[in-house]
């Protein structure tokens, strides 16, 4: 009787779900850009990573070029090693580039600020699996205050 109508409406329901799914996937979570594109991996060793988290962005001059893929501890010297996934289209950073952990705004999330270095002869580009040598750690507020107090004490 109205079986046709029932099936038609269920079909519409399914299509609406797919549309919602696509909206969430492409427009909201932006699933494709980071994971699907070609990427390469770099490593950076810090003294302290502060509040850096997996999936924190890696930015050059404010432009996101990749994300933190994993955070581990080097078992030899007990310093944190951060694995960065960088989009392949940005693959010409020289070895002299530096990475630092920065904070967006006063209370914002922490991210990795990537600073491309100078290029002269004999300096090669960073490639898959390389370590970034020049790194600076996150600013830890307690340490800063400690240093400040210590330096005041020693001056007096």
């Amino acid at each position: 009787m109205n079986r046709y109508k029932t099936e038609l409406m269920v079909g519409v329901f399914v299509l609406m779900t797919i549309a919602a799914f696509l909206l969430l996937a492409l427009k909201v979570a932006n699933q494709t850009v980071v994971t699907d594109g070609d990427t390469y991996t770099l490593y950076a060793k810090f003294e302290n990573i502060g509040g850096l988290k997996v999936r924190s962005p890696v930015k050059v001059g404010g432009v996101t070029i990749g994300r933190v893929n994993a955070i581990k501890l080097d078992k030899d010297d007990y310093s944190p090693v951060v694995e960065l996934t960088i989009q392949s289209e940005y693959n010409e950073f020289p070895e002299t580039s530096s990475a630092s952990i920065l904070t967006s705004g006063l209370l914002g999330e922490q991210y990795i600020g990537f600073e491309p270095g100078f290029t002269i002869d004999g300096v090669e580009n960073l490639a898959e699996g390389d370590y970034i040598e020049d790194t600076s750690s996150a600013l830890v507020l307690e340490e800063l205050i400690g240093q400040f107090l210590f330096s005041r004490n020693s001056e007096e």
């Binding site: 549309a19 919602a20 799914f21 909206l23 969430l24 909201v28």
Partner: peptide
């Protein structure tokens, strides 16, 4: 089957 579908539609419509 229906509830997760409805939840996805709910979120998408809410964002819009």
């Amino acid at each position: 089957i229906a509830m997760p579908m409805l939840a996805l539609i709910f979120s998408a419509v809410g964002i819009l």
